[in-house]
């Protein structure tokens, strides 16, 4: 559908990550963005009305599109990424065993001795869960689309998350891109030699790719270890962290927006 219009997103292995480096909020304090996303998610999860979730989606969309400057089309594309899981999940919630005599039953199909269908309450819950889920996805994206991974790891360092965990995050993040490039090159080479012409061959080719990639990852590891040792590595991967500044304006805005959301949550309780 929007595939051609979104070719830019489709080309990069992680288009969300790409926007994280190219948006107008990139230099804002990462903790501000985490606060905004976190509070919005929290209020949406706790509020009982889907209206709050819809309001949150509206607010987040304005923040992402107007403030951060991310194209609306791209944002919607990302919000819909988990739609498969969410829609199947809520349909499973909506369709339930029903008592056809109950006036709250909207639909009932007899299956053997039981009746399967949709009840008012199950439909309401499905709508509620779907809207909350999408609002949380949108809020999380507000963080992911505006915050480079470096800023996230820097912030985690400040919060005293175990050093080892962060160092592994740093290494993994960097080498995911290297390995994807390798994997893509291998895939193209295999494809050129008809490695994906049928199901059996495809499976065989994916297996070969995975095995080769594993061996490459292990040689990469020793090459990187050697290179880091040459720069004085002796067990710790210390780097200088950025020193972002808090913006009073942003904090006031976040406080205002979250208060509105909170009031809406209380009003629709």
């Amino acid at each position: 559908m929007a595939a051609s219009a979104l070719s830019k997103e489709a080309m990069h292995p992680f288009p969300i990550d790409m926007y994280a480096y190219q948006n107008r909020l990139r230099d804002a304090h990462p903790a501000e963005k985490m606060l905004f996303a976190g509070l919005t998610i929290l209020i949406c999860l706790i509020a009982s009305s889907p209206l709050v979730a819809l309001l949150a989606i509206g607010i987040v969309t304005v923040a992402v599109v107007r403030v951060a400057g991310i194209p609306l089309r791209a944002f919607w594309y990302f919000v819909r990424l988990p739609a498969g899981f969410i829609l199947i999940g809520v349909l499973t919630l909506a369709i339930t065993s029903v008592d056809p005599a109950n006036p709250a039953t909207l639909l009932a199909l007899p299956i053997g001795p039981w009746h399967v269908g949709v009840m008012e309450s199950s439909l309401a819950r499905a709508v509620q869960v779907a809207s909350v889920s999408f609002s949380c996805v949108a809020s999380m994206l507000a963080l992911a689309l505006t915050t480079p991974m470096v800023d996230i790891t820097d912030q985690l360092r400040k919060w005293r998350v175990p050093q080892l965990f962060i160092e592994l995050m740093v290494l993994m993040y960097r080498f995911i891109f290297v390995f994807i490039e390798t994997a893509q090159a291998m895939y193209i080479a295999q494809n050129a030699r008809l490695g994906y012409s049928n199901w059996r061959r495809s499976l065989q080719s994916v297996g070969m790719l995975a095995a080769n990639l594993y061996l490459r990852s292990q040689t990469r590891a020793s090459a990187l270890f050697t290179a880091l040792t040459a720069r004085g590595y002796s067990g710790e991967l210390r780097v200088l962290t950025a020193q972002p500044t808090w913006s009073r304006r942003n904090l006031v805005l976040i406080a205002g927006v979250e208060s509105v959301l909170l009031l809406a949550a209380i009003a629709t309780w």
Partner: peptide, 23 residues
């Protein structure tokens, strides 16, 4: 080193350059 992908480990240019000095 010959292959820069085997030498650069950090996600940002500035951070990677700061690795040696801190060591």
């Amino acid at each position: 080193f010959q292959d820069p992908d085997s030498q650069l480990f950090a996600a940002s240019v500035r951070q990677d350059i700061s690795f040696g000095p801190l060591n």
